[in-house]
Simulated assay, not measured.
Amino acid sequence: MKNNIVFIYFLIITFSLSPTVCISCLGQNEMSTDTINIEGFKIIPLKAFDYNGNLVIKEDTLFLVTCCNFVFYPFGKLTDKNSLKKSVFKNWTIKKYKRESFKNTNLAPPVWEFFEYVQVTFGKNKLSFFFDNDPEASTHGYISKGEIWDNKVELLQHIKVGMDINTFCSKFFVNYPPELYKRFRVISFISCISDITQHFTFKNEKLSNIKFVPQP
């Protein structure tokens, strides 16, 4: 798996990647002009999925590179620890928290910057967030790692553990051939501008768990 991730990272660095991201790749029906051809079958992504054009197949996992905000804002945009209290995470338990601030004198005028690491849990579910206010960064908050194991946790557009694979795929693709349901047990989204990958694992065509894995 580690060698596979290194290879994916190489692909991301090698290709010219667009820094533009959509507000949300969900709830929009416009079809992309891209077609993903896999073993004689065609996957057509939604235009807002912002498919990067790169894919990797590793055993039963399909990796797709996307520039959509959903890969680091799957619960909506969060900016700091306080924003968690006003979100779906308001009842989660904060297990770890670290904040540091510094004066960036490389900017004119100098700017006070901060970054935060927050780890939260809810039953078996756990997520780690990274937040900052770097004026030169394209994003200021994302899930750095974590895992979701039950349907008490819901992502945007009602994506949650237990949903069927057809409904899941309809959130991101205009067409995803049923013949690929058993071919790929895991569908993974790699962000083109961040270091996070989302793994959606299916069992008996039902979403079994969701994992957020950082690149090495």
Rank of each mutant, 00 (worst) to 15 (best):
D34G: 02
N3P: 10
E100L: 08
V186H: 05
K90R: 12
F173S: 08
G53C: 01
I165C: 10
F70V: 12
F63S: 04
R185E: 10
T14K: 08
P74N: 06
I57S: 00
I57V: 03
W112F: 10
M31K: 14
L62V: 09
I210D: 05
N125W: 04
F202A: 02
C67K: 13
E39T: 00
N91T: 13
S170H: 12
I5W: 00
I43S: 00
F122E: 04
Y51W: 05
K126N: 12
W92N: 02
E136H: 12
N91R: 14
I13A: 06
C22P: 14
V120H: 03
D164V: 13
V21E: 07
K86G: 09
I196T: 08
Q198V: 04
K145H: 15
I148G: 04
N166E: 14
C22H: 03
G53Q: 01
K145P: 07
I210P: 07
G40V: 03
I44H: 15
E205L: 09
R183W: 13
K145D: 08
F102Q: 05
F114N: 12
F172S: 09
N166H: 13
D80R: 07
N3R: 03
P74Y: 14
G141A: 07
P216L: 08
T121V: 14
I143D: 07
M31H: 01
C192D: 09
F200G: 04
H158I: 13
D195P: 14
C169E: 13
D60E: 05
S101N: 11
G123Q: 03
C25A: 14
S188T: 07
N69S: 13
N52K: 02
N106I: 12
S24E: 11
F102E: 08
F41H: 13
V65T: 02
D164K: 05
F63M: 03
G40Y: 00
N54L: 02
T35H: 14
F212H: 06
S194Y: 00
K124V: 06
F189N: 03
L55C: 01
N166I: 14
L26F: 00
K145V: 11
K47A: 10
T66V: 05
I187N: 13
V161K: 02
C25H: 06
I44P: 12
V186M: 06
Y73G: 11
I44S: 14
